[in-house]
């Protein structure tokens, strides 16, 4: 399968007073056309920086220190901003957690969507405005012609996120990146937005990259999942396999530590300790100090990612784990 998005050896560093830290460290992954990939991790895992890097939105003090990001074969790293602007919004688009921060507060919703269309396509203002109304209808906003004339603050959180999605899909991108798109929303509205993303993906054949801390969201819909920890990918697997039998102790611990709505346990098996600071990483495996399987050898070298068919994990014990 030729990848739609191919990320190779991507390292994104941020300059801090304590020196440069790598928020994303030597990350490689692919997304196929129409595929739904989930990237899961806690704060500081590098999942959002990965999305920003793909969109060419890493700004100082951050920079892409090494690696390659190809979209449909075209290299994006090092591409001038002028060229990147033609790709962003047209061939891939992004939806953020807080729609209010991404929308212009003094411009009507319909005009903002029409502006995005006219940036990429040579159409009349009238045609763009009509398409904006159609798009608002497509994302399930009632009375779209009327709502197109509304300002963002006149809409609810769920409606704003729908408007953001309408803008993102305006030019039928091949890849839609959604960074915590439902985290700021109530659970019943979250279900609506996830249903919308699923139906849009089916209808337009878009690939979807969902960045989230919520394993539940990827469990229900993603084809494949990457688990990140402290800047590194620790596991990659088809969704069903990951949830059935996680290979990396961190993925296993994460799955275990989440309370389930239907099964009640006396004590949650929490992962002890805290996520390390990127400027003070432990020697060897980054998860070592919190890992219940850690051995002295785990502190000597950071284990590389190794592949077993469709799965991959970065644990020194991977062979035992794969057999266990």
């Amino acid at each position: 399968m030729s990848a739609l998005l191919a990320v190779r050896d991507l390292t994104v560093t941020f300059e801090t007073t304590a020196g440069a830290v790598a928020a994303v460290d030597a990350l490689s992954f692919d997304i196929g056309p129409g595929e739904f990939l989930g990237i899961v991790g806690e704060s500081g895992s590098g999942k959002s920086v990965t999305a920003l890097a793909a969109m060419g939105l890493v700004v100082a003090p951050g920079r892409i220190a090494q690696g390659s990001i190809r979209l449909g074969g075209e290299e994006l790293v090092g591409l001038p901003e002028r060229s990147m602007r033609r790709i962003r919004g047209r061939r891939m688009a992004m939806v953020f957690q807080e729609p209010m921060a991404s929308l212009n507060p003094v411009m009507r919703i319909g005009d903002q969507i029409a502006e995005a269309i006219r940036w990429h396509e040579d159409v009349s203002a009238r045609a763009a405005a009509a398409r904006a109304v159609d798009l608002l209808g497509t994302v399930g906003i009632p009375a779209p012609a009327e709502r197109a004339r509304a300002y963002p603050q006149q809409m609810s959180g769920g409606m704003r996120q729908r408007a953001m999605i309408a803008m993102a899909i305006a030019c039928s991108p091949a890849l839609l990146i959604a960074d915590e798109p439902t985290t700021a929303l109530d659970v019943t509205v979250q279900a609506q937005i996830m249903d919308l993303l699923r139906s849009l993906r089916e209808r337009f054949g878009m690939a979807l990259l969902l960045i989230t801390h919520d394993l539940g969201l990827v469990a229900e819909q993603a084809d494949r999942v990457l688990v990140m920890y402290a800047g590194r990918m620790v596991e990659e697997a088809p969704t069903a396999s990951l949830f059935a039998r996680p290979l990396h102790p961190y993925s296993a611990g994460l799955l275990d530590s989440i309370p389930d709505i239907e099964i009640r346990r006396p004590v949650l098996p929490a992962i002890e300790g805290v996520v390390p600071s990127l400027s003070a990483l432990p020697p060897g495996c980054r998860f070592g100090p919190r890992c219940r399987f850690a051995e002295p050898a785990c502190t000597t070298a950071d284990p590389p990612l190794r592949r077993f068919g469709v799965r991959a994990t970065a644990c020194r014990r991977d062979l035992d784990l794969a057999r266990a």
């Binding site: 609810s156 769920g158 409606m159 109530d186 659970v187 019943t188 509205v189 979250q190 279900a191 609506q192 996830m194 249903d195 919520d214 394993l215 539940g216 969201l217 469990a219 229900e220 969704t239 069903a240 949830f243 059935a244 799955l255 989440i258 389930d260 709505i261 239907e262």
Partner: peptide, 18 residues
């Protein structure tokens, strides 16, 4: 509406409106 941490999930009642 609560996502389950189980692939496949179960039938969901999605409320209309907010």
């Amino acid at each position: 509406a609560v996502p389950r941490h189980v692939p496949g999930g179960r039938p969901r009642i999605v409320l209309a409106g907010e």
